[in-house]
Design a protein around this nucleic acid. Sequence first.
DNA 1: CGAATAATTGAAAAAGATCAACGTGAGTGG
DNA 2: CCACTCACGTTGATCTTTTTCAATTATTCG
Lengths: 234, 234
Amino acid sequence: MVTNPVPYTRSLHNPEHSGHHTPGSPHARMAAARTALERIGCDLKKPAKNVVFRQGENADFIYFLQSGAIRLDYQLENGRSLVLDFLWPGRFFGIMEDAVYAWSAITLVDVHLKCLRRSAVQTLARNYPDITDLLLKQKTAALMAAKNHIVLMSHPTATSKLIGFLLAYSKQPEYFNQTTQVLTLIMSRKDIADYLGMTFETASRIFKYLETRNYIKKINHRQIQLNMHMLRKP
Amino acid sequence: MVTNPVPYTRSLHNPEHSGHHTPGSPHARMAAARTALERIGCDLKKPAKNVVFRQGENADFIYFLQSGAIRLDYQLENGRSLVLDFLWPGRFFGIMEDAVYAWSAITLVDVHLKCLRRSAVQTLARNYPDITDLLLKQKTAALMAAKNHIVLMSHPTATSKLIGFLLAYSKQPEYFNQTTQVLTLIMSRKDIADYLGMTFETASRIFKYLETRNYIKKINHRQIQLNMHMLRKP
DNA sequence: CGAATAATTGAAAAAGATCAACGTGAGTGG
DNA sequence: CCACTCACGTTGATCTTTTTCAATTATTCG
């Protein structure tokens, strides 16, 4: 299992993309809303490879990922399944318009979640309009992730899809060591393939091909040193 | 050009997916917000094949599609472009978190838009919290469309992608005649190909293949009779 | 250690892309 | 009205990429 020597965490008060913010800034404005959410949320820890919620279950809770990583799976009627997204700390997930979850959420590593009852959030949102703003921002983040996913899938070759994936994934500070340039893959070849729309054999072969061309260097199956200069070139 | 003998329109008071709704229902609750939006919006008509906004431009306006259809294009740095979505009446679009539009919006046919200044909507949202709810619902609709797009692109063959596209598109009452089973394609083969991640030659060949297998019958390049029974089968 | 899972590799088949040529149909100007 | 043009669509031949099916090697976990 992948260990996190220095866990990279996000709290509701230290959310995604928040930097230094002065009072009166959009981020600061939401502080009260975040505190209110903090109060109704309960902490939840889950080990790696566990189901947080399953597609079709009643969508009674929404979640905030404080540390770790999540994979969102969508199952088709014919049994095939695909990976819709990988989630990193700071992301809300499970925010559904409908009564049931439209996809499943699986932990990739040990995770620390904040668990919020949907009805409680809805009630609270009446007093704190910024909560709705926060959810809107999160939906926007999800939509941008989906757009980037579509762009990746539309790449003409499996090689460029995989390179695009590695470059996007290497933005995660917890899994990419800037000094050694080593990327720790917390998902399987099959997960990557199911995300990019290819078979896992093809994904495996492309890794091989990238190594022969010195784009990457495999330390082991889950640790890969990236030659960023080469990967960013074409 | 494709004519719409009986234009299919949506107003802010007759939005997407709204059916009969009683006072006190979520839809009815938003009536005041919609009226307020109606007041600050101005009507805008555009002919077919016109730019509503271009990727990179200042995102000063958000739009509501009252009638017609829109194509959302994303241009990559390398010059390649892809179709992110097709929009139908009742959809808001151009709601950006950032200062500039992340993609372009092009009319496919003559359209009737409601045009709203972003700053005015933001101001109004302070008095009408339901406006933020409305935008959140619209983001959810956009995210679900993106999810369906990803599912389509992940299909293993070009044939199943195209069948999935035809079945989804045939849900648009303005372009699918339920009695004759004729679908009017308002987008080119290239648009479809750029949406599904294939070349337009492949899209053309699959149309041919579907005709030989009696899945479809071409009336002309833009009018196709669907054999729903066959298309839904596999 | 040993079983189960994940990853790699090979060979053959299928699917799709590419490049090139040819139709078709709507709009234009003589 | 008719030829012309231009964008769009179709089709063919060839080449490349990816999948499929099968076998083998690694790794992980109890």
